[in-house]
Design a protein around this nucleic acid. Structure first.
Lengths: 228, 228
DNA sequence: TGTATTTATTAGGTGAACCTAATTTTAGTA
DNA sequence: TACTAAAATTAGGTTCACCTAATAAATACA
């Protein structure tokens, strides 16, 4: 059986490799992420390696093995289901959810996770818009589409942009819209295709169709009617 | 702030003093209860004493101070609310609940506890029939009454008996009804006052009015209509 | 290509929470 | 009251997860 304390390492390694898309994960990154010092992390990686959950070489970095991957998905699932439950059922705000889920994810009961998932309505994405892996470790594919194709009332998350001119990125920075920003589509103006969105709880902005075309998002709610 | 690991000691001390009604709690009892060895417990008691949460003298035993008592009630509250939530909302069986609640009670968020309590319908007693302390640490007084006064459908817990003849106690032992046994009142027979109860999940028994008169219970459900 | 900087590694240490074994204290009873 | 059994205490050890400081290796770039 996997130790509880392994889990945070596996999740962190997963998150980091995810974020850097195939780049190698390093000890110092991991240490920073986990708020530990490199020697502590190194020591632990040796154990994880002995348990055949990861491979590590100075040159090639840290990688999850097949079974490590499986475990990591399981931890990610637990974490995201707790977040979902806390947000949807317990009405915790977006920002409060993460820290609490961190503590709760240590509890070991698959049955509990299943019940919480049911109570939360079995969504495919957590409140941050991150996909919830199935029990078998499969991620629901997020339907990447331009913000422009939204329907009113849609809740979505920014996955990226389709243009990286400085001007465009500066514009988004100015508006404080970044990666993983969660947008609520409040109104669509059909006469010019502009989109009114609300984000960061209370900020609103009207984005021109030109901009909305280039912001790539994915819906968070199940069965959303947006065109993909 | 109280350390998480203090909490299990405080709860254990509370439980033990509770069970022995004013008898002094001893180190060896506590060690047995916590599944630790006496030296470990002693070491820890010194710390708890330094934190002014308990008083301890070899002669007078272990006692909670005022602030220790307050903390203990808080832990008990957390624990019982988790148990209630797991049972009522997550549909865990009675027996599964305790171990899980043990893990969950380490999570520190008063807000979460409040939300779970609301989700569970704010009952005064947990699924074992134990009272849930209020935030201020006040226990709801259990309405001690004879089983005889039940209404059909009542769920109650055995608090004690009003007679202690060996015959009577043997009879209860034979039926496997003990202290804290949870009884569901299935039927009342008005012609002779006997009471049909179900317990231990599936055992049923019909108790004569003479017996039902002497078994003292308290209702678990809020607003139960039983005579007190 | 050589040097500066970053990153990884080693060595050794701390405090917490446990333990065992040995000793002392307390309490119960012949 | 003296003796024995039980309970408490002391002393000293282990493991674990963390740390710091020093050294070695890798990388970046002038």
């Amino acid at each position: 059986m996997i130790k509880t304390s392994d889990e945070k390492y596996l999740r962190a390694i997963y998150q980091i490799s995810q974020a850097e898309q195939g780049q190698k994960a390093t000890i110092s990154e991991l240490a920073y992420y986990l708020d530990l010092k490199p020697p502590t992390v190194l020591e632990r990686l040796k154990i994880l390696q002995a348990e055949k959950l990861i491979t590590y070489k100075k040159t090639s970095g840290i990688h999850l093995t097949k079974s490590g991957q499986k475990e990591a998905m399981n931890v990610v699932r637990k974490h995201r289901i707790w977040e979902t439950f806390l947000h949807k059922v317990c009405k915790f705000s977006w920002s409060e959810v993460h820290e609490l889920a961190e503590q709760l994810q240590n509890v070991n009961s698959e049955k509990l996770i299943d019940r919480l998932y049911t109570l939360s309505g079995e969504p495919q994405f957590d409140p941050h818009g991150d996909p919830i892996p199935s029990k078998t470790g499969v991620l629901p594919s997020s339907q990447r589409r331009p913000l422009l194709n939204s329907v009113e009332g849609c809740k979505c998350v920014v996955l990226g942009v389709n243009e990286d001119s400085t001007d465009f990125l500066n514009y988004l920075t100015e508006l404080n819209i970044g990666l993983n920003e969660r947008l609520n589509v409040e109104k669509l103006f059909s006469f010019d295709g502009s989109v009114k969105v609300k984000y960061k709880n209370s900020v609103t902005a009207v984005l021109s169709s030109k901009v909305a075309e280039k912001i790539m998002v994915t819906c968070i709610k199940a069965n959303c009617l947006c065109k993909v």
